[in-house]
Design a protein around this nucleic acid. Structure first.
Lengths: 199, 199
DNA sequence: AGCATTATAGCGAACAAAAAGCGAATGGCA
DNA sequence: TGCCATTCGCTTTTTGTTCGCTATAATGCT
């Protein structure tokens, strides 16, 4: 998200121009101001700055650049929980102002994240690219989703069931078979507390 | 996990540079600032600091170094990303330490959360009890998941497609039918940036 | 104490990729 | 019609990545 040297120059020029004139510069004026000979270069810069969320403008509109206020240094880690949404129904507002944050999931436990590859947890609605939030622990309870190390080699994400003196590691994908392993050969690395997805 | 003397010097130089210039230094500038003759050395330092969770940057991106605020041990909002778990069979793949937090998803946008009720997004792997993270916006692009208010009464979570002058709102559940509504009767409330689940 | 192992720190050179740039043709808008 | 913005292919410059090699300190083991 950081700007490059040149990008900052472009940004500074535009803010300066708006400051001085009260309206935003055309691409050609920007080109002149920065001693650029091609408008394509200006266009590319503008687009990049837009992608970084530092500028805003509307497509094909002349002199429509807005310089956005510099992002507040510390982005919030806590979001307001506005209500519940169900298909077809209006948003059901929540009585009290609630919020949600990662802290609510991790508490004061020691937690790390893993990016999930593959589809072995798809029936659990955990899919490729998702991030599972894992508490570092050596033990797990019946039916929890765990990160387990089998025979010191394979790390997998499975549901954990103890059956006598063997462990059943159950994938959440109807097409995959459970794995049965003697307790002594399974080392639990952690248990899944939550999941985070980014679109 | 503690930094060495040299590492602290590198770190201090980078923060100072960003402070002064508003953009992050290139490897060569770092080398000059620390009187190093090889960029490889700089590279190694950066990588080490990254692994200690003090810096963040993306591979091959120039001037993209971010100095991370030291995270509080008691209540972290940023989690170490330890690697990727290929849930199929294979082993755990570790690599350069990254981190993840809600801030990475929301950026500096105005975001709120909604708790999902029902199964209308189940094919999207969003299920009852999940929290969708929604950016407050009036517009959306083709195919994005949006919170839409139809005819001022029903709020729904659907994929958004413009088809001429009507809007198709596509549920992500094979058993549910899409809704077609004239553009004038649809008000977009926000678009979904991410999702959070708590077990 | 002696030895092996590992982490840090450093160098230069070959290589790879992103950022920045150009000109010209094209396309929207008033 | 005239002013601007957009897009395309292409070149140059800047920047980051990797490899092999040396050296020195810190750690661990016997």
């Amino acid at each position: 998200m950081a700007v490059t040297k040149r990008q900052k120059e472009v940004l500074d020029f535009i803010s300066g121009f708006v400051q001085r004139n009260g309206y935003s510069p055309s691409f050609e004026e920007i080109a002149r101001g920065l001693e650029l000979k091609s408008l394509a270069t200006v266009h590319k810069h503008i687009t990049n700055l837009q992608n970084k969320g530092l500028l805003q403008r509307s497509h094909n509109r002349s002199r429509s650049i807005d310089v956005l206020p510099p992002r507040s240094k510390s982005h919030p880690d806590r979001l307001p929980l506005m209500g519940r949404i169900a298909a077809g129904q209006p948003v059901e507002a929540i009585e009290i102002a609630e919020t949600i944050s990662l802290g609510d999931i991790i508490g004061n436990r020691e937690v790390f994240a893993l990016e999930v590859r593959g589809d072995s947890m798809q029936d659990e609605h955990i899919v490729d690219g998702d991030f599972v939030l894992v508490e570092k622990t050596r033990t797990a309870r019946q039916g929890e989703i765990v990160v387990a190390l089998v025979r010191d080699s394979e790390a997998t994400l499975k549901r954990y069931y103890i059956e006598g003196d063997v462990v059943r590691l159950q994938p959440s994908n109807a097409e995959m078979e459970p794995i049965y392993v003697p307790i002594s050969q399974v080392a639990i690395q952690g248990r899944v507390l939550g999941m985070l997805r980014k679109y």
